[in-house]
């Protein structure tokens, strides 16, 4: 097998689409894992002082977890669209594969960074509710503001994938 043949096997249209699905799962997943653990570490400090705050702390901790889910959804949609799980998988050309890869990029990148940034706001929100437990709404809202951009990214990713015509 020549090198060119190898390349043409590796870079098939289907594989590009799967690369997109993989990136959409990997990057936001990493970001969310990092984010949720970051808030979890901050909330453990609060819980040693006041275990009754667990519910509120958990709410804040769950917030940066959504990016991972957005990535997962995008990946699933790509897999559905290519019919990879069905009896008759599609054969995509390079252009189609590249389209689906590009569709995955918004949530892949924005999801990764916004999860971590959102987690930092949520972690400082833990400090806020440690002193003022009644202000949990504000802590959640300011953390949710960061998520807006992940939502916009997943919106574009989903639209691109849904409008994919084989």
């Amino acid at each position: 097998m020549t090198f060119v043949e190898l390349l043409s096997h590796v870079f098939s249209g289907n594989n590009l689409a799967f690369l997109g699905a993989a990136l959409a799962t990997i990057l936001p997943g990493l970001g969310s894992a990092k984010g949720v653990s970051l808030v979890g570490e901050a909330s453990s400090g609060l819980l040693t002082e006041n275990p009754s705050m667990f519910g509120k702390a958990l709410l804040l901790q769950a917030l940066p977890g959504t990016q991972g889910i957005y990535g997962l959804i995008t990946a699933f949609l790509i897999i559905f669209k290519t019919g990879a799980l069905s009896a008759a998988p599609m054969h995509l050309d390079l252009g189609q594969g590249g389209y689906l890869l590009a569709a995955a990029l918004p949530i892949a990148f924005v999801g990764y960074f916004s999860a971590i940034r959102q987690a930092r706001v949520a972690a400082s929100g833990i400090n806020l509710i440690a002193k003022r437990p009644d202000q949990v709404g504000k802590a959640i809202t300011s953390s949710a503001l960061v998520e807006t951009y992940a939502i916009f990214a997943v919106l574009i990713s989903l639209l691109l994938v849904l409008f994919f015509k084989a």
């Binding site: 957005y70 997962l72 699933f76 799980l85 807006t148 939502i151 916009f152 997943v154 919106l155 989903l158």
Partner: peptide
């Protein structure tokens, strides 16, 4: 106004995860 596009994004998110569960 564009901020309301999150309604659609979150709506699709729950629908697609639901679909995955069903499959």
């Amino acid at each position: 106004l564009l901020s309301y596009s999150r309604i659609m994004a979150l709506g699709l998110a729950s629908a697609v995860v639901g679909q995955v569960v069903n499959i």
